[in-house]
Amino acid sequence: MMLQLLEKIKSILEYLGGVSEDLPLESLRWMRGPLWWGTWWAVLILSIVAFSGQSSKFIYIDF
């Protein structure tokens, strides 16, 4: 049961990462559409902007 769940998660992540083009579950058909991919790519880019590139020893925050 747990192994199957892990397999499913792995295949979903592979699909999201572009490793596989086969949709892991039929119930995730909506992930095939351009609306999903456009949103997903934008979320990834925004996450990169928000979480990477900090170069100072500590972030000086003016509270």
């Binding site: 609306l35 456009g38 949103t39």
Partner: peptide, 12 residues
């Protein structure tokens, strides 16, 4: 799909 998805990404 790639073109529409790219345009949507840019919009967001």
């Amino acid at each position: 799909t790639v073109l529409i998805a790219s345009a949507l990404s840019v919009l967001i």
